[in-house]
Every structure is written in structure tokens, then in C-alpha cells.
Design a protein around this nucleic acid. Structure first.
Lengths: 223, 223
DNA sequence: GCACCAGTTTGATCCGGATCAAGGTTTGCC
DNA sequence: GGCAAACCTTGATCCGGATCAAACTGGTGC
């Protein structure tokens, strides 16, 4: 169970030390904020259960979904650079996270190279993830973006032992649009079109991918 | 001089140790690749002189500029998560970087908490930077994007002691467009329009910002 | 059971930026 | 210095996704 909080190749006493660093769990109800943009940065959070979104805030008030986070994801990494969180995090359904006080973790990482390596990998993976999103926002057409989003979710559910073809979206059309740089009407239309074309079946938030290969082809196309 | 490679509050012997970790400088001619997407990850690079661009590559071959890097910037952080670089880095003019073997740096960071903290901040700052770009790509109009880009460059030149109002673009219109999710014609038209409106003077790659306040207003910032 | 409201679907129209096209200008190389 | 190639500008037109508008749906509270 503990490994979920920060999976890393450790054993025995080391694991106990890591355990001690991990604060208690926190329960969140749908709609609750875990932290807000501007809050002092003090800890990372590992999602134990549920789904969260993180949102970036522009100076002028515009808000945009920066990512969706499932069980096992680590969030809050962005605050590290500035001592303030640059994002906000909100639960999209009842969720549970565990808190990892960063001061403590950093200290621990000095003594445990594998943990240090792991921490660095989390940070770097976040960078890679962001680069994929930049690619999506900067050079994909609307249909490619949605297909890409669905395939990404599918893969993440699969790797967590859930169905990769049938799942419930925990976010609204507007939130999906915000993440993909599209308007909610466009997202809705695309779902309808994908359904007409036999790529998936959709009913509200329930989605069933019926032709993953075709979705993949859609993403790989250029012009 | 050395501090430039990884500026951090260290002194005496510590600094010497960091010094030892920093490999020799490498010179790059305009157009040279420092590394390519897919290359094994082994080191970070500090830009000593010149300008580099990093580019993300999609599976289908699409390429997009992920960032522009000036003197003092650290690049290559993205490779850390996967042991492979996810980006490529190319010199936009004759440049000079110094190599920081990562294995070595990680080891050193264990003994020198300020260095560790510094490394984490670099990683996290990269994440914040990417989030700003996501915001730009996902929710700004073309003119806001270009204004934002120019103000960002301006600020970075200023903080390096160069003129914040008059500088030479080291990248083509197409590269600017790639970074901003726009086509080169759109970038060119915007430059012309900004000039007509008295926001700047442009002649090829020479830019002189003549109304920074107006550019800020355009973006929606007030700083 | 019903009213309400947030979320969703669908249609009609508009517009910003892409695309296509044609010169013009700068840069680098011999 | 001259030529080719890369880069930039500007015009005309097109189209994808935004915007505006209007129903529809499903969940929630009373």
C-alpha cells in the first residue's frame, strides 16, 4: 500500500523511513480544492483514490485545465520552484490523497539514492507530459486532440487494471475543452461525430471505445 | 564564471567540487545539434553564450519548437525521466554550452543540500514555464501570443543586462510560429500590424519595442 | 412527483487564422 | 560580385472551430 505513495525500489528500514515521511491521508469531496494557485508550497500529494484536475491561472483570470490525475499520480510538483503553487488542484469526484511533506522528502532523498532518482524521474516525467500537451495544443486539429485525450485516458485506466475501453468521464465537456484548447460545443459535436463514425459509443459521461485502432490512426495523421 | 553554469549559494571546497562535475565547454556552430530526440540522456547543459531552440517530436514526425534558451539557461532536463532525450536541441547561432554529467551532479546533490534544492528548482521552473506555454497555446489569440512572446524575450534580455527594447531575433518567422502554434504568414502579418499600430519597429530580425505598455495591455498583464 | 439547474446536444452563422499564391529581400557560398 | 537558396511580406480565398441561440436531459432537493 505504501509503495503506491511513492513507488521505489526500497526495502526494510528505508521503506519505514519513507513511510514516516508520508503524512496522513486526506479525504476530499467532489469539488473540494486540495490547494489553490498561490498557496504556499509545502508538500506533494499522491492520489490514492479518485480523480483530480489541476488548473493554471493566468494573471488576467483566465483559467485552464493543465491535467487530470488518477490513482497513483503525484501532484503538486510545480510549486517547488517558487515556494508557491502555480496550479490549483480540485477533486472531480470523492477522492483520497496522501500528503508528502516536501522538506522531509528532500532530506530523505539525500540518504536514499533510489528515492532521489525516483523523485527526479517524477519531475522529468511531468515535463515530458507537458511537452506532449504543448504538441497537442500547438499542432493538432480538434478531432486529433479529442482522440488523443481519450486514448491517453484509456491507456492510464488499462495500466491501473480498469477497462481500457469502457469508462466514465469524471469531467464536464467544458473541462475537457479547457484542457484541449477547445470550446465545449466543439467537444460535444466531436463526441457525436465519433459515435456516428463508429469509433465509440457515448452517453453523457459514459464512454465505450469501439474502434481504438481508428482513433490511433486519427491521431497519427498530418493534414 | 563557474557560477554561471549552475548558480547556487556555495563557497570554497563545495564550489570546487561542483566545478569538477562540470565538464568542458562545447562550441556549437549555427545549426548544430547539441542532442537529438531519442539520444541517450547523460548530461545537462548550461548555455554560456548564444541561443538554442529545443524541439519536441511527435510520433508522426511533426516537430514543434518547445522553447528558446539564452545564456544561463539549463537545458536537457526533460531526458531525465526516461534515460532518453525527448527533445532535440539546436543552436540558432554560434553558441557555447558547458556539459554537466548528470550522474555526477545527482551524486553531488546528495552532499550539498543547496545544490539539491537548486536542481529541484530548475526542474520545477521548467514545469512552470511549460504551463505558461500551455496557457498561451490553449487560450490566447494570435496577437496575444506574439505580444507575450516578445515581452518574454524582452524580459529575459533585460535580466541579462541587454537592452529590453531592442534586440535581434535569432529565429525565423516559421520557428516563432511553431513555438506559438501559428503559421509563419500569420506571424509575419502580426509583425506588420504591430508596426502599423506603433507598438514596435521591425526590419527582418531586428525588433525595437516602442510601446511595451500597449503590448502588456494586449496580453492582459499589468506588471 | 415535480421543478429546477447544471450540463449537454444540435443548429445557424461568423470570423480568425490557415492555405494558396506571387513577389521581394536577405544570406551565404563560389 | 554574382547567383542560388532561404527567408519574408502581402494579397486573395477558404475553412475549422468559435459564437450565438435554443431546446433537451438527468440528477437533486423539496
Amino acid at each position: 500500500m505504501r509503495e503506491l505513495c511513492l513507488p521505489v525500489g526500497l526495502s526494510g528500514d528505508d521503506l519505514k523511513a519513507v513511510d514516516a515521511a508520508v503524512g496522513n491521508r486526506a479525504r476530499l469531496k467532489k469539488g473540494d480544492s486540495l490547494y489553490r494557485a498561490g498557496d504556499a508550497f509545502a508538500a506533494l500529494y499522491a492520489v490514492r483514490l479518485g480523480t483530480l484536475k489541476t488548473t493554471v491561472l493566468a494573471e488576467d483570470g483566465r483559467e485552464q485545465v493543465a491535467g487530470y490525475h488518477l490513482q497513483g499520480d503525484i501532484i503538486g510538483l510545480d510549486g517547488l520552484g517558487t515556494d508557491r503553487h502555480g496550479c490549483g488542484a480540485v477533486a472531480l469526484e470523492d477522492s483520497e490523497v496522501c500528503t508528502i511533506p516536501f522538506e522531509h522528502l528532500e532530506e530523505l532523498a539525500r540518504d536514499l539514492p533510489p528515492l532521489q532518482r525516483n523523485l527526479h524521474q517524477f519531475l522529468a516525467r511531468e515535463i515530458s507530459r507537458d511537452h506532449s500537451v504543448m504538441l497537442l495544443l500547438g499542432s493538432m486539429r480538434a478531432e486529433e486532440r479529442l482522440a488523443s485525450f481519450l486514448l491517453n485516458l484509456s491507456e492510464r485506466y488499462r495500466s491501473r487494471g480498469y477497462s481500457s475501453t469502457e469508462f466514465v468521464l469524471r469531467m464536464t465537456r467544458e473541462e475537457i475543452g479547457s484542457y484541449l484548447g477547445l470550446k465545449l460545443e466543439t467537444v460535444s459535436r466531436l463526441f457525436s461525430r465519433f459515435q456516428e463514425e463508429g469509433l465509440l459509443k457515448v452517453s453523457g459521461r459514459n464512454v465505450k471505445l469501439t474502434d481504438i485502432a481508428a482513433l490511433r490512426r486519427l491521431v497519427g495523421q498530418r493534414t
